[in-house]
Design a protein around this nucleic acid. Structure first.
Lengths: 248, 248
DNA sequence: TAGTGGTCTAGACCACCGC
DNA sequence: CGGTGGTCTAGACCACTAG
């Protein structure tokens, strides 16, 4: 049942504590043995114990307080970590072929509405790209992207021959902050046509904005067709675990 | 510009490194000074430096390799942390009044389809609840919930007078794992009627399943009406930051 | 082989805070 | 006051790996 005796002391300590918590033997609020207790229990130095407990506290698994000791932390169920993969990576994961078509593009300066929406100055040069992502030839999602050419000048002449804009950007541009907004909307006639679905079909829309410092780098609005697409997030109360996203 | 001189050495080291990364001065792949270099630069012991770098590596901000040293890690933009708040908490946050109606409920044993879907044994006693959540009197979301009464026996007779099932469960039941699935669907006539929207309106559906160990505790399917509802996640490349979820 | 990180020790002093 | 965690030191040996 237990892991096969980890090589390092800190792994054993950590596995033991996490096991107690995950199994429910140590419920929320339950006291963790003090550092001194764990020292003697595992026959190691305090620094070793301290590194484990500090790490657990950093991850929100336990809460540490002076004098009263450490306790199992209340996990916040209201955080869901979703993976929203790069399209080529997602296709590979699901064993499908990936292809993309750039349906439309233009380079211009940001008008008032655009500038206000994404928080850039009016007149900033931007490149718009409309990309259809296809898995096994079938439309998977439609992406409408804006790239701030002041922030990413190399994108002005990039042909995006072998990689779609999102993948290219991810590899070339360092970023510091990102925001995702997810909502649902009925497909417009033009969107429906390009995704090969019926007008009015419910679509999942993921908007992603990425910044470097205060400068917006890019904004993408990705439309997933109908009920086919699901964003999946899985996590545990003892830290966050990765997940899968994609069609059923 | 810099933070006002942190008290501890490890805070200074960490702030300096994160600052270099976030500002873009140290792009992805850029080498982090070795532990020995940082020791001499900050005039501290190796253990202090090591704790900082280990923590940064644990959070995925840097990647550490023997012999070649540490480098700035490639941030994974594909993770979105969404907060999916408890309804009373969400109402309070947005300054609205909260109310809920339990529209329907029944207690029975799990049939084949239910058992298979959520992974419990056929015949397990379960309680189904259909709850309408209202903000300022208006329908905010419709929740269809299943509770495993073998795992949460106290839920069998709980009247849910003052708190909706989800809030009650959060406060009473320890859990270890959770999964969220988000997708979009067109509102059925009955759903549309209860949410006071037009049939066929695109809805955002959040399914949440919660386990304790291998035992499913509860499953909730929450339908948010139309384009009104948005899930928002914000994060930084140097670790994850919390976010907001809600209408508008 | 040499340089890097991975781990660990056996101490130390301090800040906090409930009793 | 005493016990807790927070931080730090000045070493040590080992594992891994590029050159």
């Amino acid at each position: 049942m237990n892991a096969p005796l980890p090589k390092h002391i800190h792994q054993r300590i950590r596995a033991d504590i996490e096991g107690h918590i995950r199994s429910g033997r140590w419920p929320v609020g339950h006291a963790i043995p003090s550092e001194a207790d764990l020292m003697t229990a595992y026959g190691c130095s305090r620094m070793t114990v301290n590194k484990v407990l500090s790490s657990l506290a950093e991850q929100g698994i336990i809460a540490r307080r002076r004098r009263t000791g450490s306790v199992v932390a209340q996990p916040s169920i209201d955080k869901a970590v979703l993976t929203i993969r790069d399209f080529p990576a997602e296709a590979e994961r699901s064993g499908k072929t990936y292809a993309f078509d750039i349906l439309a593009q233009r380079t211009q300066t940001a008008d008032v509405a655009t500038a206000a929406r994404v928080g850039i100055a009016i007149g900033t040069p931007v490149r718009f790209l409309t990309t259809l992502h296809r898995f096994d030839g079938q439309p998977e999602a439609l992406e409408e992207r804006l790239i701030n050419l002041d922030a990413v000048p190399a994108a002005r002449t990039e042909p995006f021959d072998d990689r779609p804009p999102g993948t290219w950007l991810l590899a070339h541009v360092p970023w510091s902050e990102a925001e995702h907004v997810i909502h649902a909307a009925n497909a417009s006639p033009s969107l429906a046509k390009r995704l090969a679905i019926a007008t009015g079909t419910a679509c999942l829309i993921v908007e992603r904005r990425t910044w470097q410092g205060d400068t917006l780098l890019t904004e993408a609005r990705i439309h997933y067709p109908g009920e086919q697409h699901r964003l999946v997030g899985r996590f545990t109360s003892t830290g966050l675990a990765a997940s899968a996203a994609g069609p059923e």
